[in-house]
Simulated scan of single mutants.
Amino acid sequence: MDRDFSAFNSYFEKIYILTLPRLKDRIELFTRELNGLNYEIFYGIDKEEISMESMKQQGIYDSAAYTGIYKKQPEMNPGMLCCSLGHVKIYESIIANQYNRVLILEDDVFPVAENLPLFPQLTQELPDDWEVFYLGYEGNEIFGWKQTVKRLYYMTFPFHTSLRLSRAIFSNYYPRPLSKHIAKAGFHDCTHAYGVTLEGAKKLLQQQTPVVYNADNLLSYAIALEKIKGYITMPKLFNQRTARYEIRSLTS
């Protein structure tokens, strides 16, 4: 299906789609649905071709630091590690090529067609200091009176079922609207569609060398701890196909 992606092609200096050669069904789907988008396929690291022990020995992955962040999982699973490494490799490419504005998509992404025409207006509203810009995300999408109460409670009694979160993180847990279509990002899930600047890529790479975060938590922690300037678009321009179709995930 043809859609007008010209504004995306003009705004971003580079567009990557992260996938694996063996995921042919996914590649076929995003090739069809993103026709007109000037992207480059970026092949990540396959979980079937790595050894977790080797990743530790090479200093690529720090399991001790990982357990300091995640309460219930003693070890990152291989699929998630490879997903995180795929994003790390893209940050390295951004830095090596000195790309100033890059859009990163995962292979389970699909566009919200009716919202795509909003993109030129979104870029006009987006603050110039942005370093991470979510075009798709999940979780903590609104900030109303219920969220205000929850935030105050968690700031008093910090608690999360699976993550170790501080009062500082809970103070920035929910988005804060800045304009009609842009909000300061909160603590969000997913990395299926986000923009990153050159400076943003440098900061994310520093935080993820060695790998200690799941890919989406890297962004959410960095933003909530105010180590990087992140924003979200309202409404979302991209969603994840895995939330809608039964297709195997990169991290399954």
Rank of each mutant, 00 (worst) to 15 (best):
M80I: 02
I50E: 00
A193Y: 04
L152H: 11
G44A: 05
T123C: 14
I232W: 14
E49H: 11
G139F: 08
V132S: 06
K71L: 00
I95K: 03
E199M: 06
L178D: 03
K150T: 12
I17R: 04
A96T: 10
F110K: 14
E125K: 10
M52Y: 15
E114N: 14
L152M: 12
E13M: 02
M155L: 03
Q240D: 15
P210S: 02
V149G: 07
Q58F: 05
I142E: 15
S84F: 00
R32K: 11
M76I: 05
Y99E: 15
M55V: 01
L81W: 03
F187I: 01
I15E: 06
H160F: 01
F187S: 03
F170P: 00
S171A: 08
A183F: 06
A224H: 04
K71Q: 03
S63R: 10
K89T: 05
K236W: 14
L122A: 14
G59A: 00
Y91W: 13
E53M: 09
F30N: 03
A168E: 11
R32M: 07
T242F: 13
L135M: 14
L205A: 06
L23K: 12
K24Q: 15
E53P: 04
K202G: 00
S166Q: 04
Y134P: 10
Y66N: 01
F157Q: 13
L135R: 07
P74C: 02
A222L: 09
S51R: 12
N35L: 15
F8H: 08
Y213E: 13
T67F: 02
A193R: 04
Y173Q: 05
S84A: 15
P175E: 07
R22W: 05
E49S: 10
C82Q: 04
K56N: 07
S171V: 02
E114V: 14
L152P: 04
E246D: 13
I182V: 06
S249W: 05
Y99C: 10
I90S: 01
H188Q: 06
I60Y: 02
V109Q: 12
A7Y: 09
D129C: 11
I182E: 05
Y91R: 00
Y154R: 12
D128F: 08
F110V: 11
Y66R: 01
N239F: 09
G144T: 10
G86I: 02
V211M: 10
D107L: 07
